[in-house]
């Protein structure tokens, strides 16, 4: 830990205003999402606690019927927007992080196999990646989402919505991981320490996992950070289009969709606050990812 604080990396980090600010915003948002149940004044998922009389309360103004005051106002069902945003942030971040984890594991494994085995397997995996890249990832995610919903029995649909969301976003973002890892694997496998590992009778799987994997993981962290921003936006887009998180468990995208219905009738806060939160989150993660890339792996630029 001491070594980390004395490193070049930390020195540059503290002196880069963009990196420092974006990291602090991400940290702040992540912490408020994690501790949402402690910070939030109400539980937005608990339908019984909602009071319809509180509907459409503007921010910081007492409700004419109940006299309750809400920081960021309420939506049409009287749900406290501040609490809804905190819980929505939690879902957005969770879906984003899990989708990136899935994409990273899948991309790293497929890239490793393609790069090490070569031949027809390499061709198969990488041509499939090429084909997938010609479609916008949101389209791929919608396709997978639609298929999954079609297969699932109706009573499971809402329950599985978040899982389906994670899988569909994860499957649409694995290609950059696979391409980078494949490239580094092809460089590493020609090195003599791999030949030495073959001489002592290790099989391909052992060589890939024990020798190559630790040496190709460096750029994965950078790609994961940049992909996280993409995944959060993809989740918000899907939810905004009405195919993502259900209304009973709103993510930021769902909240923006709900808010959009009321924008022209004057209830601006229902749209504005979730949208600003999403903007702050996606922008900060993206800026931090860019800085990380320039710092750790300028070649990826």
């Amino acid at each position: 830990m001491k070594r980390f604080f004395a490193s070049d990396f930390f020195y540059d980090f503290v002196r880069s205003p963009v990196a420092l600010l974006s990291f602090l915003i991400v940290l702040f948002l992540v912490l408020s999402a994690v501790f949402a149940s402690v910070i939030a004044p109400t539980n937005p998922f608990d339908a019984a606690s909602l009071n319809l009389m509180n509907g459409f309360t503007p921010p910081m103004e007492p409700n004419p019927f109940t006299g309750d005051v809400f920081w960021m106002g309420t939506d049409d069902q009287g749900r406290d927007l501040f609490s809804a945003i905190l819980y929505g942030l939690r879902i957005s971040l969770f879906v984003g992080a899990m989708a990136v984890a899935l994409a990273a594991v899948m991309g790293v494994l497929l890239g490793l196999i393609a790069g090490y085995m070569g031949g027809w397997l390499d061709n198969l995996i990488m041509r499939f990646a090429d084909i997938q890249m010609t479609f916008p990832s949101i389209l791929v995610a919608m396709l997978i989402f639609g298929v999954a919903r079609g297969i699932l029995p109706p009573e499971l649909r809402d329950e599985m919505a978040i899982t389906v969301l994670i899988v569909s976003i994860g499957l649409s973002e694995w290609v950059p991981f696979a391409r980078t890892v494949r490239g580094s694997t092809m460089v590493e496998k020609e090195k003599e320490y791999i030949a030495a590992a073959r001489l002592i009778g290790l099989n391909r799987w052992q060589i890939m996992m024990r020798h190559i994997l630790p040496n190709v993981l460096n750029p994965v962290l950078v790609i994961a950070t940049i992909t996280l921003a993409l995944a959060i936006i993809a989740e918000a887009t899907l939810s905004f289009l009405g195919v993502g998180a259900p209304r009973t468990e709103p993510s930021l995208g769902t909240l923006i969709r709900v808010g959009q219905d009321f924008l022209f009738s004057g209830e601006w806060w229902i749209l504005l606050f979730p949208a600003c939160t999403l903007l702050a989150l996606a922008l900060s993660v993206n800026l931090f990812g860019d800085w990380l890339r320039d710092k750790l792996n300028p070649r990826l630029k």
């Binding site: 090195k191 003599e192 320490y193 030949a195 030495a196 590992a197 001489l199 002592i200 009778g201 020798h211 630790p214 040496n215």
Partner: peptide
């Protein structure tokens, strides 16, 4: 595999022949 054990190799590059991790 057992036979291969009896023949080992020392490589040319002292930098690429050891896993850096």
């Amino acid at each position: 595999r057992l036979m291969r054990r009896r023949i080992q190799m020392v490589f040319q590059s002292p930098y690429a022949s050891l896993n850096p991790r």
